[in-house]
């Protein structure tokens, strides 16, 4: 199959690759230098485990082709913490609030939460639950994920204030 060049900046680093046009972004990412934190949990864009940031917006990377990301900047879960290793407030909150069990949905959940807080920095529980509706978790019953998002919102507002 014919391959086409793409240039994608992932977690600040530029990757130039030749890819099949049909290659899903999630597979492109998972095959890059061991960046396997982005997960594949389904094949119908239901579970949200593959959610990443593409130019600052969340995208389910299984519904996007690598070629569509040409020229874009992507943040995966590996790139969310600060360069000195300090966890992002969302990562810290998921840890503090027991917002994960098996951890498989967590990278996608954290980015879904990121989107909630981007659009609504002080969300109600109802807004949080609505915002998480596109991501599935089978372990937590979502309760501590909601708490994690709430705690992250508080921490991030405090950080700004």
């Amino acid at each position: 199959m014919v391959k086409v060049p793409v240039a994608v900046r992932v977690n600040g680093r530029l990757y130039e690759r030749e890819v099949e046009p049909r290659l899903l972004l999630v597979h492109f990412l998972r095959d890059l230098d061991g960046l396997t934190g982005t997960k594949v949990g389904c094949d119908t864009s239901q579970c949200g485990s593959c959610t990443v940031l593409l130019d600052g917006m969340t995208v389910k990377s299984c519904t996007c082709l690598a070629v569509q990301a040409d020229g874009a900047a992507i943040t995966t879960i590996e790139g969310l913490a600060a360069e000195n290793g300090a966890l992002h407030p969302l990562q810290e909150a998921f840890w503090n609030q027991h917002g994960l069990q098996c951890g498989f949905c967590t990278p996608g959940m954290i980015f879904a939460a990121h989107e909630i807080l981007r659009t609504s920095p002080d969300p109600s529980d109802e807004e949080i639950r609505h915002g998480l509706e596109g991501n599935l978790c089978r372990c937590t019953g979502y309760q501590n994920i909601v708490r994690s998002v709430r705690a992250a919102a508080d921490a991030m507002q405090e950080g700004e204030g």
């Binding site: 960046l35 396997t36 934190g37 982005t38 997960k39 995966t76 879960i77 590996e78 969310l80 913490a81 966890l87 990562q91 998921f94 840890w95 994960l100 951890g103 498989f104 967590t106 990278p107 954290i110």
Partner: peptide
């Protein structure tokens, strides 16, 4: 959790 929230766990 630290390895799970940073994407460094290996499934």
């Amino acid at each position: 959790d630290p390895r799970l929230v940073t994407g460094s766990a290996t499934y």
